[in-house]
Computed example of a mutant assay.
Amino acid sequence: MKLQDHLYKCSIFLLVSFFLISCISDNETNDTVGEIDNPLQNPFDGIPAGNPDGNAAIPAEASLEDVSNPDTVIGDGTPESCTGQAFIDAVAKGGKIVFNCGEAPITITLDTPAKVFNNANDEVVIDGGGLVTLSGNNQTRILYMNTCDRNQVWTTDQCQNQDHPRLTVQNLTFANANSTNETEFDGGGAIWVRGGRFKAINCRFFNNTCASNGPDVGGGAIRVFSQYNNQPVYIVNSTFGGKEGLGNSGANGGAISSIGVSWTIINSLFSYNKAIGSGGNPARPNTPGGGSGGAIYNDGNTMTLTLSGTHITANEVNDFGAAIFFVTNDRSGNMVIETSTIENNIGGSWYPSYPGISAHADTDIRVVNSTIIE
Protein backbone atom coordinates (compact mmCIF):
# COMPACT_ATOMS: atom_id res chain seq x y z
CA MET A 1 0.00 0.00 0.00
CA LYS A 2 1.28 3.46 -0.89
CA LEU A 3 2.07 5.76 1.99
CA GLN A 4 -0.37 8.42 0.81
CA ASP A 5 -3.18 5.83 0.58
CA HIS A 6 -2.45 4.68 4.12
CA LEU A 7 -2.48 8.24 5.45
CA TYR A 8 -5.76 8.97 3.64
CA LYS A 9 -7.49 5.94 5.19
CA CYS A 10 -6.17 6.83 8.65
CA SER A 11 -7.57 10.35 8.26
CA ILE A 12 -11.01 9.01 7.29
CA PHE A 13 -10.98 6.66 10.30
CA LEU A 14 -10.15 9.50 12.68
CA LEU A 15 -12.89 11.73 11.27
CA VAL A 16 -15.53 8.98 11.61
CA SER A 17 -14.39 8.22 15.16
CA PHE A 18 -14.63 11.88 16.13
CA PHE A 19 -18.13 12.10 14.64
CA LEU A 20 -19.34 9.06 16.59
CA ILE A 21 -17.90 10.33 19.85
CA SER A 22 -19.59 13.72 19.27
CA CYS A 23 -22.96 12.03 18.70
CA ILE A 24 -22.64 10.02 21.89
CA SER A 25 -21.75 13.14 23.86
CA ASP A 26 -24.75 14.98 22.39
CA ASN A 27 -27.11 12.18 23.37
CA GLU A 28 -25.78 12.17 26.91
CA THR A 29 -26.26 15.92 27.14
CA ASN A 30 -29.88 15.61 26.00
CA ASP A 31 -30.68 13.52 29.08
CA THR A 32 -30.81 16.75 31.04
CA VAL A 33 -34.30 18.25 31.17
CA GLY A 34 -34.58 21.72 32.63
CA GLU A 35 -31.98 22.04 35.36
CA ILE A 36 -32.28 18.53 36.79
CA ASP A 37 -30.43 15.45 35.58
CA ASN A 38 -33.15 13.08 34.43
CA PRO A 39 -32.13 9.42 34.14
CA LEU A 40 -35.63 8.09 33.50
CA GLN A 41 -35.47 6.77 29.93
CA ASN A 42 -37.04 3.31 30.00
CA PRO A 43 -35.81 1.41 26.92
CA PHE A 44 -38.98 -0.68 26.83
CA ASP A 45 -41.42 2.16 26.23
CA GLY A 46 -39.21 5.03 25.14
CA ILE A 47 -41.19 7.67 27.06
CA PRO A 48 -39.07 10.03 29.13
CA ALA A 49 -40.17 11.75 32.29
CA GLY A 50 -41.19 15.35 31.72
CA ASN A 51 -41.87 17.72 28.87
CA PRO A 52 -38.93 17.50 26.44
CA ASP A 53 -39.58 21.12 25.41
CA GLY A 54 -39.78 22.43 28.97
CA ASN A 55 -36.90 24.55 30.17
CA ALA A 56 -38.38 26.58 33.01
CA ALA A 57 -36.17 27.33 36.00
CA ILE A 58 -36.56 25.02 38.98
CA PRO A 59 -36.48 26.50 42.49
CA ALA A 60 -34.13 24.93 45.02
CA GLU A 61 -36.94 23.49 47.14
CA ALA A 62 -38.30 21.66 44.09
CA SER A 63 -34.98 20.00 43.28
CA LEU A 64 -33.94 16.39 43.70
CA GLU A 65 -33.18 15.24 47.21
CA ASP A 66 -29.69 13.94 47.96
CA VAL A 67 -29.76 10.16 48.48
CA SER A 68 -26.01 9.56 48.42
CA ASN A 69 -26.21 8.40 52.05
CA PRO A 70 -29.43 6.34 52.15
CA ASP A 71 -31.09 4.96 55.27
CA THR A 72 -32.40 1.89 53.44
CA VAL A 73 -31.20 0.07 50.33
CA ILE A 74 -33.82 -2.26 48.91
CA GLY A 75 -32.24 -5.30 47.27
CA ASP A 76 -28.84 -6.97 47.19
CA GLY A 77 -28.11 -6.40 43.52
CA THR A 78 -30.53 -8.99 42.13
CA PRO A 79 -34.06 -8.48 40.82
CA GLU A 80 -35.36 -11.24 43.10
CA SER A 81 -34.31 -9.32 46.19
CA CYS A 82 -36.47 -6.31 45.31
CA THR A 83 -39.92 -7.35 46.49
CA GLY A 84 -43.12 -5.49 47.18
CA GLN A 85 -42.85 -6.36 50.86
CA ALA A 86 -39.31 -4.99 51.02
CA PHE A 87 -40.62 -1.70 49.62
CA ILE A 88 -43.54 -1.60 52.07
CA ASP A 89 -41.19 -2.24 55.01
CA ALA A 90 -38.79 0.47 53.85
CA VAL A 91 -41.56 3.09 53.54
CA ALA A 92 -42.81 2.21 57.03
CA LYS A 93 -39.34 3.04 58.43
CA GLY A 94 -39.05 6.26 56.44
CA GLY A 95 -35.82 8.08 55.71
CA LYS A 96 -33.98 7.98 52.40
CA ILE A 97 -34.75 4.88 50.34
CA VAL A 98 -32.92 3.65 47.24
CA PHE A 99 -32.86 0.41 45.24
CA ASN A 100 -30.15 -2.09 44.33
CA CYS A 101 -31.92 -4.48 41.98
CA GLY A 102 -29.35 -4.88 39.21
CA GLU A 103 -28.54 -2.81 36.15
CA ALA A 104 -31.72 -3.52 34.17
CA PRO A 105 -35.11 -1.83 34.58
CA ILE A 106 -37.34 -3.69 37.04
CA THR A 107 -41.01 -3.72 38.00
CA ILE A 108 -41.85 -4.27 41.67
CA THR A 109 -45.45 -5.38 42.18
CA LEU A 110 -47.44 -4.59 45.31
CA ASP A 111 -50.55 -6.30 46.63
CA THR A 112 -51.23 -3.66 49.29
CA PRO A 113 -50.25 0.01 49.63
CA ALA A 114 -46.99 1.12 51.21
CA LYS A 115 -47.88 3.48 54.08
CA VAL A 116 -45.88 6.26 55.69
CA PHE A 117 -45.83 6.27 59.50
CA ASN A 118 -45.89 9.86 60.71
CA ASN A 119 -43.60 9.22 63.68
CA ALA A 120 -40.96 7.17 61.83
CA ASN A 121 -38.91 9.90 60.14
CA ASP A 122 -39.56 13.52 59.23
CA GLU A 123 -38.09 12.86 55.75
CA VAL A 124 -39.28 10.14 53.41
CA VAL A 125 -37.44 10.13 50.09
CA ILE A 126 -37.93 7.31 47.58
CA ASP A 127 -35.49 7.30 44.65
CA GLY A 128 -35.83 4.69 41.90
CA GLY A 129 -32.63 5.65 40.11
CA GLY A 130 -34.47 5.73 36.80
CA LEU A 131 -34.81 1.93 36.73
CA VAL A 132 -37.69 1.10 39.08
CA THR A 133 -41.38 0.81 38.23
CA LEU A 134 -43.79 0.36 41.14
CA SER A 135 -46.92 -1.48 40.03
CA GLY A 136 -50.28 -1.85 41.75
CA ASN A 137 -51.10 -4.78 39.45
CA ASN A 138 -54.48 -3.13 38.71
CA GLN A 139 -55.53 -4.05 42.25
CA THR A 140 -54.11 -1.62 44.79
CA ARG A 141 -52.91 1.90 45.46
CA ILE A 142 -49.11 2.16 45.69
CA LEU A 143 -48.33 4.85 48.27
CA TYR A 144 -50.28 6.47 51.13
CA MET A 145 -49.48 9.24 53.62
CA ASN A 146 -52.01 10.82 55.95
CA THR A 147 -50.98 12.90 58.96
CA CYS A 148 -54.56 12.73 60.29
CA ASP A 149 -54.88 8.94 60.13
CA ARG A 150 -54.62 7.61 63.70
CA ASN A 151 -53.50 4.24 62.34
CA GLN A 152 -50.39 5.96 60.99
CA VAL A 153 -49.86 7.76 64.36
CA TRP A 154 -50.85 11.33 65.20
CA THR A 155 -47.79 13.41 66.00
CA THR A 156 -49.31 16.86 66.57
CA ASP A 157 -52.68 18.27 67.60
CA GLN A 158 -52.73 20.14 64.27
CA CYS A 159 -52.54 17.10 62.03
CA GLN A 160 -53.94 18.99 59.05
CA ASN A 161 -51.14 21.57 59.20
CA GLN A 162 -47.81 20.06 60.23
CA ASP A 163 -44.49 20.30 58.42
CA HIS A 164 -43.71 16.58 58.42
CA PRO A 165 -43.41 13.99 57.07
CA ARG A 166 -41.94 15.48 53.92
CA LEU A 167 -42.51 12.91 51.20
CA THR A 168 -40.50 12.99 47.96
CA VAL A 169 -40.75 10.52 45.10
CA GLN A 170 -38.10 10.84 42.40
CA ASN A 171 -36.76 8.93 39.39
CA LEU A 172 -39.66 6.45 39.59
CA THR A 173 -42.49 5.08 37.48
CA PHE A 174 -45.91 4.41 39.03
CA ALA A 175 -48.03 2.07 36.92
CA ASN A 176 -51.29 0.12 37.01
CA ALA A 177 -52.32 1.32 40.46
CA ASN A 178 -55.99 1.07 41.37
CA SER A 179 -57.66 2.59 44.44
CA THR A 180 -61.25 1.75 43.53
CA ASN A 181 -61.40 -0.71 46.43
CA GLU A 182 -60.50 2.03 48.92
CA THR A 183 -63.64 3.23 50.69
CA GLU A 184 -62.49 5.58 53.48
CA PHE A 185 -59.80 7.52 51.61
CA ASP A 186 -60.89 7.34 48.01
CA GLY A 187 -59.23 8.86 44.96
CA GLY A 188 -55.50 8.90 44.39
CA GLY A 189 -55.01 5.81 42.26
CA ALA A 190 -51.22 5.66 42.73
CA ILE A 191 -50.54 8.15 45.56
CA TRP A 192 -52.77 9.63 48.28
CA VAL A 193 -51.38 12.38 50.53
CA ARG A 194 -52.71 14.52 53.36
CA GLY A 195 -50.60 16.90 55.43
CA GLY A 196 -46.86 17.45 55.65
CA ARG A 197 -45.25 18.19 52.29
CA PHE A 198 -45.15 16.28 49.01
CA LYS A 199 -43.26 16.58 45.73
CA ALA A 200 -42.61 14.38 42.68
CA ILE A 201 -39.55 14.80 40.45
CA ASN A 202 -38.57 12.85 37.31
CA CYS A 203 -41.55 10.53 37.71
CA ARG A 204 -43.90 8.84 35.28
CA PHE A 205 -47.49 7.79 35.90
CA PHE A 206 -49.01 5.19 33.57
CA ASN A 207 -52.45 3.53 33.64
CA ASN A 208 -53.39 4.45 37.20
CA THR A 209 -57.04 4.73 38.14
CA CYS A 210 -59.34 5.67 41.00
CA ALA A 211 -63.11 5.79 41.60
CA SER A 212 -64.95 6.37 38.34
CA ASN A 213 -67.90 8.35 39.71
CA GLY A 214 -68.55 11.08 42.26
CA PRO A 215 -68.73 14.89 42.26
CA ASP A 216 -65.58 15.50 44.33
CA VAL A 217 -63.42 12.38 44.13
CA GLY A 218 -60.53 12.01 41.73
CA GLY A 219 -56.85 11.90 40.97
CA GLY A 220 -56.22 8.89 38.76
CA ALA A 221 -52.53 9.23 39.64
CA ILE A 222 -52.30 11.59 42.66
CA ARG A 223 -54.73 13.01 45.23
CA VAL A 224 -53.53 15.61 47.78
CA PHE A 225 -55.08 17.41 50.75
CA SER A 226 -53.87 20.17 53.13
CA GLN A 227 -50.17 20.90 52.75
CA TYR A 228 -48.22 22.62 55.54
CA ASN A 229 -48.88 26.38 55.66
CA ASN A 230 -50.58 26.10 52.24
CA GLN A 231 -47.23 25.64 50.53
CA PRO A 232 -47.45 24.11 47.05
CA VAL A 233 -47.05 20.57 45.88
CA TYR A 234 -44.19 20.51 43.36
CA ILE A 235 -44.43 18.34 40.25
CA VAL A 236 -41.20 18.58 38.25
CA ASN A 237 -40.06 16.89 35.02
CA SER A 238 -42.86 14.33 35.26
CA THR A 239 -45.14 12.61 32.76
CA PHE A 240 -48.76 11.63 33.27
CA GLY A 241 -49.76 9.38 30.39
CA GLY A 242 -47.45 10.36 27.57
CA LYS A 243 -49.03 8.36 24.78
CA GLU A 244 -52.34 6.70 23.97
CA GLY A 245 -52.99 3.70 26.17
CA LEU A 246 -50.89 4.97 29.08
CA GLY A 247 -53.19 7.70 30.44
CA ASN A 248 -54.58 7.81 33.98
CA SER A 249 -58.28 8.07 34.83
CA GLY A 250 -60.74 8.90 37.59
CA ALA A 251 -64.09 10.55 38.21
CA ASN A 252 -62.38 13.96 38.20
CA GLY A 253 -58.78 14.95 37.59
CA GLY A 254 -57.65 12.18 35.30
CA ALA A 255 -54.06 12.79 36.43
CA ILE A 256 -54.14 14.84 39.65
CA SER A 257 -56.80 16.06 42.04
CA SER A 258 -56.91 18.13 45.22
CA ILE A 259 -59.06 20.14 47.57
CA GLY A 260 -57.62 23.32 49.07
CA VAL A 261 -54.09 22.64 47.80
CA SER A 262 -51.73 24.74 45.68
CA TRP A 263 -49.61 23.21 42.93
CA THR A 264 -46.49 24.32 41.09
CA ILE A 265 -45.99 22.16 38.00
CA ILE A 266 -42.73 22.57 36.09
CA ASN A 267 -41.51 21.07 32.78
CA SER A 268 -44.10 18.29 32.86
CA LEU A 269 -46.36 16.53 30.38
CA PHE A 270 -50.04 15.59 30.80
CA SER A 271 -51.61 13.66 27.94
CA TYR A 272 -54.28 11.00 27.34
CA ASN A 273 -55.71 11.29 30.86
CA LYS A 274 -59.48 11.14 31.34
CA ALA A 275 -62.10 12.37 33.82
CA ILE A 276 -64.65 9.61 33.35
CA GLY A 277 -67.44 10.62 35.76
CA SER A 278 -70.53 12.46 34.59
CA GLY A 279 -72.84 15.11 35.96
CA GLY A 280 -70.37 17.67 37.26
CA ASN A 281 -70.10 19.11 40.77
CA PRO A 282 -72.60 19.43 42.32
CA ALA A 283 -73.96 16.45 40.45
CA ARG A 284 -76.89 17.13 38.16
CA PRO A 285 -80.08 15.22 39.01
CA ASN A 286 -79.97 11.53 38.14
CA THR A 287 -76.21 11.54 37.56
CA PRO A 288 -73.39 10.13 39.73
CA GLY A 289 -71.34 13.33 39.44
CA GLY A 290 -67.84 14.00 38.19
CA GLY A 291 -66.37 14.22 34.74
CA SER A 292 -64.28 17.39 35.24
CA GLY A 293 -60.59 18.14 34.84
CA GLY A 294 -59.16 15.89 32.16
CA ALA A 295 -55.63 16.42 33.49
CA ILE A 296 -55.98 18.59 36.61
CA TYR A 297 -58.80 19.08 39.13
CA ASN A 298 -58.37 21.78 41.79
CA ASP A 299 -61.14 22.77 44.20
CA GLY A 300 -61.00 24.91 47.33
CA ASN A 301 -60.54 28.53 48.37
CA THR A 302 -57.20 30.31 48.64
CA MET A 303 -55.03 28.20 46.36
CA THR A 304 -52.84 28.65 43.33
CA LEU A 305 -52.00 26.63 40.24
CA THR A 306 -48.75 27.55 38.51
CA LEU A 307 -47.71 25.91 35.25
CA SER A 308 -44.22 26.53 33.89
CA GLY A 309 -42.74 24.81 30.84
CA THR A 310 -45.61 22.34 30.85
CA HIS A 311 -47.55 20.72 28.01
CA ILE A 312 -51.19 19.60 28.48
CA THR A 313 -52.69 17.85 25.45
CA ALA A 314 -55.11 15.10 24.38
CA ASN A 315 -56.83 14.84 27.76
CA GLU A 316 -60.57 14.24 27.89
CA VAL A 317 -63.64 14.96 30.02
CA ASN A 318 -67.35 14.26 29.97
CA ASP A 319 -68.29 17.60 31.54
CA PHE A 320 -66.00 20.54 32.40
CA GLY A 321 -62.37 21.52 31.97
CA ALA A 322 -60.93 19.30 29.27
CA ALA A 323 -57.45 20.26 30.48
CA ILE A 324 -57.97 21.98 33.85
CA PHE A 325 -60.84 22.37 36.30
CA PHE A 326 -60.00 25.13 38.80
CA VAL A 327 -62.74 26.41 41.10
CA THR A 328 -61.82 28.75 43.93
CA ASN A 329 -65.05 28.97 45.89
CA ASP A 330 -64.29 32.25 47.66
CA ARG A 331 -62.62 33.70 44.51
CA SER A 332 -59.31 34.17 46.33
CA GLY A 333 -57.29 31.66 44.29
CA ASN A 334 -55.38 32.32 41.07
CA MET A 335 -53.66 30.62 38.16
CA VAL A 336 -50.35 31.42 36.47
CA ILE A 337 -49.56 29.82 33.10
CA GLU A 338 -46.11 30.63 31.73
CA THR A 339 -44.07 29.18 28.85
CA SER A 340 -46.64 26.38 28.60
CA THR A 341 -48.92 24.89 25.96
CA ILE A 342 -52.51 23.72 26.42
CA GLU A 343 -54.00 22.27 23.23
CA ASN A 344 -56.13 19.57 21.62
CA ASN A 345 -57.97 18.56 24.78
CA ILE A 346 -61.40 17.04 24.36
CA GLY A 347 -64.66 17.91 26.11
CA GLY A 348 -66.51 20.71 27.84
CA SER A 349 -65.34 23.96 29.31
CA TRP A 350 -66.59 27.20 30.74
CA TYR A 351 -64.24 30.14 30.42
CA PRO A 352 -64.48 31.46 26.87
CA SER A 353 -61.07 33.13 26.78
CA TYR A 354 -59.12 29.96 27.53
CA PRO A 355 -60.19 26.73 25.81
CA GLY A 356 -59.91 23.63 27.94
CA ILE A 357 -59.97 25.52 31.25
CA SER A 358 -63.04 25.65 33.50
CA ALA A 359 -63.04 28.36 36.16
CA HIS A 360 -65.25 31.15 37.44
CA ALA A 361 -65.32 34.10 35.08
CA ASP A 362 -63.65 36.35 37.66
CA THR A 363 -60.80 33.96 38.43
CA ASP A 364 -57.42 35.67 38.20
CA ILE A 365 -55.59 33.86 35.38
CA ARG A 366 -52.25 35.27 34.24
CA VAL A 367 -50.88 33.91 30.96
CA VAL A 368 -47.27 34.63 29.93
CA ASN A 369 -45.58 33.39 26.74
CA SER A 370 -48.00 30.48 26.48
CA THR A 371 -50.32 28.91 23.94
CA ILE A 372 -53.88 27.95 24.88
CA ILE A 373 -55.99 26.68 21.98
CA GLU A 374 -58.70 24.14 21.17
Rank of each mutant, 00 (worst) to 15 (best):
R204N: 05
R204M: 05
R204G: 10
R204C: 04
F205W: 03
F205I: 00
F206M: 01
F206R: 00
F206D: 02
N207T: 01
N207C: 01
N207Y: 08
N207A: 06
N207E: 11
N208K: 04
N208I: 03
N208D: 07
N208M: 06
N208G: 01
N208R: 05
T209A: 13
T209I: 14
T209P: 00
T209R: 14
T209M: 12
T209L: 10
T209K: 15
T209F: 05
T209S: 09
C210F: 14
C210Y: 14
C210K: 08
A211D: 15
A211I: 13
A211S: 12
S212Y: 09
S212V: 12
S212H: 12
S212D: 15
S212W: 09
N213E: 14
N213C: 00
N213P: 00
N213L: 05
N213V: 13
G214Y: 13
G214E: 07
G214F: 12
G214P: 06
G214I: 02
G214M: 08
P215S: 13
P215N: 10
P215K: 05
D216V: 15
D216L: 14
D216C: 08
D216G: 11
D216Y: 15
D216W: 13
D216E: 14
D216F: 12
V217H: 06
V217S: 10
V217C: 07
V217E: 13
G218P: 02
G218W: 05
G218A: 06
G218V: 11
G218Q: 05
G219C: 03
G219Q: 04
G219Y: 10
G219R: 11
G219V: 00
G220C: 01
A221Y: 03
A221S: 11
A221P: 02
I222T: 00
I222F: 12
R223G: 04
R223A: 10
R223H: 12
R223S: 11
V224C: 11
V224N: 07
V224D: 07
V224F: 08
V224W: 05
V224M: 08
F225M: 07
F225S: 09
F225V: 04
F225R: 15
F225T: 08
F225G: 12
F225A: 08
Q227C: 05
Q227S: 11
Q227E: 11
Y228S: 00
Y228I: 14
Y228R: 07
N229S: 15
N229I: 14
N230Y: 08
N230P: 04
N230A: 10
Q231S: 13
Q231G: 14
Q231A: 11
P232V: 06
P232Y: 02
P232K: 02
P232S: 07
P232I: 01
P232Q: 07
P232D: 06
P232G: 09
P232T: 03
V233K: 00
V233Y: 04
V233D: 03
V233L: 07
V233C: 01
Y234H: 05
Y234C: 09
Y234M: 02
Y234R: 08
Y234P: 00
I235A: 03
I235W: 13
I235N: 06
I235F: 10
I235Q: 10
V236T: 10
V236W: 11
V236M: 02
N237D: 02
N237S: 04
N237R: 11
N237T: 05
S238I: 11
S238H: 08
S238F: 07
T239C: 05
